[in-house]
């Protein structure tokens, strides 16, 4: 009996309001491509505000938008595409107007050493090569489709993956000869090299960020957004390969 009481007391303590003693926690939903940059930004934000704890949920932007609209407890949403941000603003889940904080472009990713000798976007139509792309339903796939149209290339993919990190994994493992991913993914990838191509400028991806109406602490949510938009935030994003808006 005494043990049961002790357990109950512990549980109660665990459930109690953290405002009195513990740190304030904010939850940031961010696109998978922001994983590295936002992890760094979160650490710096916590260092500057010792009473705040930042928790991230990284996933595909459309999955995150869906979760927010279904009532997931998020304070800030950073999307890899304006379309996914609009899914959230459309339901009134956002307090301030979304601000574009970064831009990303596509790059050709090849396994280390470029074993297939890829030189440009035209190679994506070449027979006999293993090619991975994002599915057109996700932002990087939509961007790839625009790029191919601009270049007049009919791509012959062997696989269309569900997100950009899955594409990158196929390149890292050497299972494909070439893929189209974001420049930032190439930079974070292991055993991956990036090749620039002119048509990338045809499909520039804007990343919007906004605090959410459901935020438990609106001031802290806004403070994190300001931190991302600050010169220091800009520096971290640039280091990860993002262009300034």
């Amino acid at each position: 009996m005494r043990r049961a009481l002790a357990v109950a007391a512990l549980l109660l303590a665990g459930c109690g309001s953290p405002a009195a003693t513990g740190p304030t926690k904010i939850t940031v939903f961010a696109a998978a491509s922001l994983t590295e940059a936002f992890t760094t930004l979160g650490e710096r934000f916590e260092a500057a505000n010792p009473r705040i704890e930042v928790v991230f949920s990284f996933a595909g932007s459309s999955a995150l938008a869906r979760q927010i609209n279904q009532g997931a407890p998020a304070d800030v949403f950073a999307s890899a595409a304006p379309a996914n941000m609009e899914q959230v603003t459309g339901t009134g889940a956002v307090t301030a107007a979304p601000v574009t904080f970064a831009r990303n472009t596509l790059q050709i990713a090849v396994p280390k050493g470029n074993p297939a000798g890829i030189t440009g976007i035209g190679d994506f139509g070449r027979a006999g090569l293993k090619i991975a792309l994002c599915a057109e339903q996700v932002p990087c796939g939509a961007a790839a489709a625009e790029v191919f149209e601009a270049a007049g290339v009919t791509a012959a993919p062997d696989t269309v993956e569900q997100d950009v990190k899955a594409v990158l994994a196929k390149v890292s493992l050497g299972e494909v000869d070439a893929a189209l991913v974001y420049r930032t993914d190439v930079r974070s990838g292991k055993d991956v090299e990036g090749l620039d191509f002119a048509e990338a400028a045809q499909a520039v991806n804007d990343y919007p960020i906004a605090p959410l109406a459901k935020a438990s602490d609106a001031a802290t949510a806004q403070a994190f957004v300001d931190h991302v938009l600050s010169p220091e935030g800009r520096e971290v994003l640039t280091a990860a390969g993002f262009a300034a808006p």
Partner: peptide, 17 residues
């Protein structure tokens, strides 16, 4: 399936994919 065989309609896109 999606990790090993990838996803391409008619080749490897099964219903769950």
């Amino acid at each position: 399936t999606i990790t090993f065989a990838g996803n391409f309609p008619g080749e490897t896109t099964t219903m769950p994919l």
